[in-house]
């Protein structure tokens, strides 16, 4: 792995180079999976010509949560408290529905201290992309087991993990999330397509990305290591994201090998079958798959579950169309007559 890549010289739709989507220089360890993911975020934003002045970056605490400074440097960002990123994002996106929200968290931040806020964010279906940089270990505090560590996992200084892991994809599906994907920092192509699709989802899109920690959890046998990921990565499908204004591309596919899922804004996820039959719109199918994998230590990646049917949180709040923060002050203070009526009522 390398640090977040230098940009290409080619400009995209708003006339920006890939480098314009970079952030500041990464301070992650050399080879950290998080750098690869930050790089993918830059790539996806560039591909989508994402308006950085509308993007709001959110994170909690931990190695993962440092990453928002390493991408989209022109955007606003807020590095909040440990496990509390969901509430910050809920507040900010509710009062400004124009924001394009992207949150980055880790397995400690999401799976332990922030599990409650994570579940409630999904229950509300707050409109944002939620990336979990999952390495099964606490990096910034030097190598404690996290709640996603494998049963029986050995860590050099911490001994053997005796507790079963939480599967954050399963948690997301059970909480009502309508876009749940698993990917691998070692497969940036797949991740980038998933991420691009995630921006078009209506509500919270969760990307649980296995992101090896080269300092504390990259040993042999660890399911969060590069070598294990490379050997076991079993993509459910080959994924391509076609943005909403895409031109109709009619490639010749064998019947039954391609499935298209249309997202809320008209964009399309094209899934090409790679192995066994899988229906990402089947919630119980996704649950079954994840439950079966729990024991077999299989590492399936791709779009596990998608459902565009739920309204995003801000939609069922029935707010005015103008984002609340852009309302003029006169819309915020009722009239003098209204106060006189209230005074009269209490008399």
């Amino acid at each position: 792995m390398t640090d977040v890549a230098k940009g290409s010289a080619t400009a995209n739709q708003p006339g920006l180079n890939r480098a314009d989507y970079n952030g500041s220089k990464s301070t992650f360890c050399n080879g950290c999976g998080h750098n690869a993911i930050a790089n993918v975020i830059v790539g996806a934003a560039y591909d989508l010509s994402l308006d950085m002045t509308r993007v709001a970056k959110f994170s909690g605490i931990g190695c993962s949560s440092k990453s928002p400074t390493y991408f989209l440097g022109r955007s606003h960002g807020i590095n909040g408290l440990h496990g509390r990123m969901p509430s910050l994002a809920t507040g900010a996106t509710t009062v400004n529905s124009d924001l394009i929200a992207i949150g980055v968290s880790g397995d400690g931040d999401t799976g332990s201290i922030g599990l409650g806020q994570f579940k409630h964010l999904l229950r509300r279906n707050v409109d944002m992309v939620y990336i979990i940089m999952n390495n099964g270990v606490y990096g910034l505090t030097k190598g404690q087991l996290s709640a996603t560590a494998d049963l029986g996992q050995k860590l050099k200084h911490k001994g053997v993990n005796e507790l079963p892991p939480l599967d954050l994809c399963l948690e997301a599906i059970m909480a009502g999330c309508g876009f749940v994907a698993r990917s691998f920092a070692g497969d940036p192509r797949q991740l980038q397509e998933l991420l691009k699709a995630a921006f078009s989802h209506r509500g919270t899109a969760v990307l649980n990305v296995i992101s090896p920690c080269v300092s504390f959890n990259n040993g042999e046998g660890s399911t969060k290591s590069y070598s294990w990921g490379k050997e076991h990565d079993l993509p459910l499908h080959e994924i391509n994201f076609l943005p909403m204004d895409h031109e109709e591309i009619r490639a010749d596919y064998e019947p039954g090998t391609v499935r298209e899922v249309e997202l809320h804004d008209g964009s399309v996820i094209r899934l090409k079958k790679t192995g066994k039959e899988y229906d990402p719109t089947d919630r119980m199918g996704a649950v079954t798959l994840l439950e079966e994998e729990r024991n077999g230590k299989v590492f399936t990646t791709g779009l596990l579950y998608v459902n565009e049917g739920r309204q995003a949180f801000a939609e069922h709040e029935m707010l005015v169309v103008t984002p609340l923060v852009k309302l003029p002050d006169e819309k915020l203070r009722p009239s003098k007559e209204a106060l006189e009526k209230i005074n009269a009522k209490y008399r």
Binding site: I78, G80, R84, S87, G91, G116
Partner: peptide, 20 residues
């Protein structure tokens, strides 16, 4: 909200975004 941690978190998030 689900608890007071989230209540103040949302308030701070909304305040950051420019809402009273």
């Amino acid at each position: 909200t689900e608890d007071e941690l989230a209540a103040i978190g949302m308030v701070v998030g909304a305040g950051w975004a420019g809402a009273r």
